[in-house]
C-alpha cells in the first residue's frame, strides 16, 4: 500500500472518490430524462474547452468548465424550444466540440498524446489546483443532486405534473444539464471526457438492478461509482493503463454481475392481478325505502358478480338490511 503515500496518487484517489460520487448522482436524473448520451455530447464540448485552453495557454479545467456549461445551456434551450430534436442537438455537440477542440489543440502545437490525457484520464495530471476546483464543484453538484432530489425527481418523472405543482421546471431542467456539464469536466482528469458518460449511466443501471426505489437507487449508484472509480485508479496504477478505461470496464463488470440478480427477483415476483387492490371503504346509502329489483324502473349496471341500480346520483346494491354505494 505504498502507492497511497505517493502525492499524485493521493490527488488521483481523492478526485476519483469525488467523481465516483458525483457522476452517478447527476447521472440518475440524466437517465430518468432519457438523455443517457448527454454526458457523451457534453464531453465532446469540453474537448473544445481543452483545445481553447491549450491555444490560449491557460489552465484547461476552468476553461473546459465554462465552455461545457455554456454548451449545455445552449443545447437545453434549443431542446426546450423544440428547435432541435435531442438527436440532432447531441450530434452538433459531438462533432462540433470534438472537431474544434482538435483543431485548436493542433494550432497550439499539441498532438493527440496531450489530448488523450483528457479523453481517457491520467493519474499524474491531477494538479493541486485542479483538485481544489474538482472538490469545490463536486461538493456543489452533490449538495444540489441530493438536496434537490425531490424536485428534480418530479421534473424528470413528469414535467407536466411538476408544472402543475408550481415547480420551476425550466430552471430545474437547466440546473440538471449545468450540473451534468460541471460533472463531465471535473471528471476529465480521472475517467476522461470520452468515458465519463459511462460513469454517469452504468452505475445507475447497476443500482436499479440491486436496489428498490428512486432514493435507494441514487445512493446505491453513488456507492457503486466510488467503488469502481477507486478500484479503477488502483488498477490503472498497477496495470499502467489510462484510469478511465479501467474504471469503465469495472463498471460494466459490476453491471453484468447485477444482471442475474434482477432477473432472479423478477422470476420470484408474483404476477400482478388486475384487480389486486384492497376494496374501497364500505359506504352504506343513507335511508333508502325503495326496494330495487327486476322491473323496478331504474337503470341496471352489471358490476362483477352482481348488478347495481342507478338513480338520483347513486349507484348501489342491496347488502343485508341496507344498500351499499358502488
Amino acid at each position: 500500500m505504498e502507492v497511497i503515500t505517493l502525492a499524485f496518487m493521493q490527488r488521483a484517489l481523492i478526485a476519483a472518490i469525488l467523481t465516483g460520487l458525483v457522476a452517478p448522482a447527476i447521472g440518475t436524473y440524466v437517465v430518468q430524462r432519457r438523455l443517457s448520451l448527454l454526458g457523451d455530447g457534453l464531453g465532446h464540448v469540453a474537448i473544445a474547452g481543452v483545445g481553447l485552453a491549450l491555444l490560449t495557454h491557460t489552465s484547461p479545467l476552468p476553461v473546459a468548465v465554462v465552455v461545457c456549461v455554456a454548451g449545455a445551456v445552449g443545447i437545453e434551450l434549443l431542446r426546450e424550444r423544440g428547435r432541435a430534436t435531442g438527436d440532432v442537438a447531441l450530434a452538433v455537440l459531438f462533432y462540433g466540440g470534438l472537431a474544434s477542440g482538435v483543431l485548436m489543440a493542433g494550432a497550439a502545437g499539441q498532438g493527440a498524446g496531450t489530448l488523450s490525457n483528457y479523453l481517457f484520464g491520467s493519474l499524474t495530471s491531477v494538479t493541486a489546483s485542479d483538485l481544489v476546483i474538482v472538490a469545490v464543484l463536486g461538493v456543489v453538484v452533490l449538495i444540489a443532486s441530493v438536496g434537490l432530489a425531490p424536485q428534480m425527481f418530479a421534473v424528470c418523472a413528469d414535467e407536466d405534473f411538476a408544472r402543475v405543482l408550481g415547480l420551476r421546471v425550466r430552471a430545474y431542467n437547466l440546473l440538471i444539464v449545468v450540473l451534468a456539464a460541471i460533472t463531465v469536466t471535473t471528471a476529465m482528469r480521472t475517467v476522461g471526457l470520452l468515458l465519463v458518460s459511462a460513469l454517469m449511466v452504468i452505475p445507475v443501471a447497476t443500482s436499479q438492478n440491486l436496489f428498490k426505489g428512486f432514493r435507494s437507487g441514487l445512493y446505491g449508484a453513488m456507492g457503486i461509482g466510488v467503488v469502481v472509480a477507486l478500484s479503477g485508479v488502483f488498477g490503472s496504477f498497477y496495470a499502467d493503463v489510462p484510469p478511465g478505461a479501467f474504471i469503465v470496464v469495472l463498471a460494466i463488470a459490476a453491471f453484468a454481475v447485477s444482471w442475474p440478480i434482477t432477473s432472479w427477483r423478477h422470476r420470484r415476483r408474483p404476477l400482478a392481478s388486475v384487480d389486486e387492490v384492497e376494496p374501497l371503504p364500505h359506504e352504506p346509502t343513507p335511508e333508502h325505502e325503495h326496494v330495487h329489483g327486476p322491473g323496478c324502473g331504474h337503470r341496471v349496471v352489471e358490476h362483477g358478480d352482481h348488478v347495481d341500480y342507478v338513480h338520483d346520483g347513486h349507484r348501489h346494491v342491496a347488502h343485508a338490511d341496507h344498500y351499499d354505494e358502488h
Partner: peptide, 21 residues
Amino acid sequence: RASVSLHTTTVRELVTSGTLS
C-alpha cells in the same frame, strides 16, 4: 399516464412528489 423511466420508482415515492406544491 406517467412516464416513469427509472423502473424501480416506488408507489410511495411517486405519491410523495405530490407534496412538492
